[in-house]
Structures are given as structure tokens and as C-alpha cells.
């Protein structure tokens, strides 16, 4: 227990990796969610079918299985991935599949007459989505996206199992070096809780910003 500060630094280095994973994973998840979510309501059956297959596949198995598959099986097809790339890919694709359903649900929740009005004033499909439907659908997506981001943060701990040195991994290192269990694990539990609290606080702020002026509309 002598070198407390040293071990804390180790854990904080891991915390930085966790933050990076969360940010990059969320960014990928957001892109994937919109692509797959819009794909599910596409005019073309093939696109719909592809998006559905992707969503069901990634929601049907756990992030752990996907991560191991990406890290151990994909390299055999020639695609060599660093643990960080594999981690971001697994997190982004997994949470993106959940996000896609949110995107679809929010877009379908925009009232039909909005669509009809767009047709009536002769907007193109792109204009309709960009200026009428998405601005109304976004505030509906935000609360669930917030929950998804927290799920993603929690899921980052799984990457420690493919030897990526995130917070959980570093806690295990400290445990094996010092034999002390309480200190590292309580520290990272508190850090994870602080991060998820910060996330949900940030999302609530964002929600208030986006829904400003919408009182009474819904």
C-alpha cells in the first residue's frame, strides 16, 4: 500500500482510455444508429432487410461475444485490428444497433400530417427529412440516447478482457501487484459512477436546450 499515488496514477491513465473509448464508441454508434435507423424505413426492400439483419444480429448477441469475435476471428480473414480499434468497433456497432431502433421509433413518432404537409408543399425527400422530420424527431431520441451512452460507458469495461488497458484492466493490474482488492475496485466503482453521473447530467442539459420553445407543442 506504500505507493498509493503511483497506483492511483495507473488507474487514472486507465480512466483516460475509458473516456476515449466512450467518446469514440459513442461517435461511431451515433453514425451507425442513423444509417441503420434510416435504412430500416427505406423505400428499398433490400436496404430495409440489410438494416434489420444488422440490428437483430447485434442486439441478439452480447457485446462480449461480438468483441471476442471481432478481435479473434476477424484477424483470420486478414483484417488485423489493434485492441483499441476492435473495442471501438464492437462498442459502436453494438450500441448503434440499439440506437437504430430509437432513431426509427422517433421518426415514426412524428405525426403523419407532417409528412403529408411536406408532400403538399412539394419538398424533396431529403428536404423533408432534413428540415421537417429530423428536427422534430431529435428531441424524442435524446433521452434514450442518454441511456444508451451510459450503457456504452459501462460496456467499455468489457474491453479489459482483450487486454486493452482501460480502468478495469488497470484495477486488475493494481490488484495483482499489491494484493489489495478493496482500494482499486472501490476507486474504479466511484470513477465509473462519477462518469455516468456526468453523462446523464450533460444529456439532461442538452435535452433542455433542444426542447426549448417546444413547451405546449407536445
Amino acid at each position: 500500500m506504500g505507493d498509493w499515488a503511483g497506483y492511483l496514477t495507473l488507474i487514472l491513465m486507465g480512466a483516460w482510455v475509458t473516456v476515449k473509448l466512450t467518446l469514440m464508441g459513442s461517435a461511431l454508434a451515433l453514425v451507425v444508429a442513423f444509417v441503420a435507423g434510416l435504412g430500416r424505413i427505406s423505400r428499398h426492400a433490400a436496404v430495409r432487410w440489410l438494416a434489420t439483419a444488422y440490428i437483430e444480429f447485434f442486439r441478439g448477441t452480447s457485446i462480449f461475444v461480438q468483441l471476442f469475435w471481432i478481435y479473434f476471428v476477424l484477424p483470420m480473414t486478414g483484417a488485423e485490428l489493434t485492441p483499441m480499434q476492435a473495442g471501438v468497433m464492437a462498442l459502436g456497432l453494438n450500441v448503434g444497433a440499439y440506437g437504430a431502433e430509437v432513431v426509427r421509433g422517433a421518426i415514426l413518432a412524428v405525426p403523419r400530417d407532417q409528412h403529408e404537409a411536406c408532400v403538399a408543399v412539394n419538398l424533396t425527400r431529403f428536404q423533408r427529412m432534413r428540415h421537417i422530420i429530423l428536427p422534430q424527431a431529435l428531441p424524442l431520441m435524446l433521452p434514450t440516447f442518454g441511456n444508451n451512452a451510459i450503457e456504452l460507458l459501462k460496456a467499455t469495461s468489457v474491453v479489459s478482457l482483450i487486454s486493452l488497458s482501460d480502468m478495469t484492466f488497470q484495477a486488475q493490474v493494481v490488484r495483482s501487484q499489491t494484493g489489495s482488492t478493496l482500494m482499486p475496485f472501490v476507486t474504479i466503482l466511484l470513477l465509473y459512477f462519477a462518469m455516468s453521473s456526468a453523462l446523464s447530467f450533460g444529456m439532461r442539459r442538452l435535452e433542455r436546450r433542444v426542447t426549448r420553445g417546444l413547451d405546449g407543442v407536445r
Binding site: L153, K154, S157, A171, F185, L189
Partner: peptide, 22 residues
């Protein structure tokens, strides 16, 4: 809130590694 805000994996480690010390 605390349990929901922290990863299951870390909670499992906590139960598996810390509790025996207690």
C-alpha cells in the same frame, strides 16, 4: 443509481475478489 451507473463486470470483480478479503 450507483449500481445502475457502474459496470456489471466491475461489480462481479468486487464480489469475487473483495468480499473474500472481508
Amino acid at each position: 443509481e450507483f449500481i445502475r451507473g457502474t459496470p456489471l463486470l466491475v461489480q462481479l470483480y468486487f464480489i469475487f475478489y473483495v468480499l473474500p478479503d472481508l
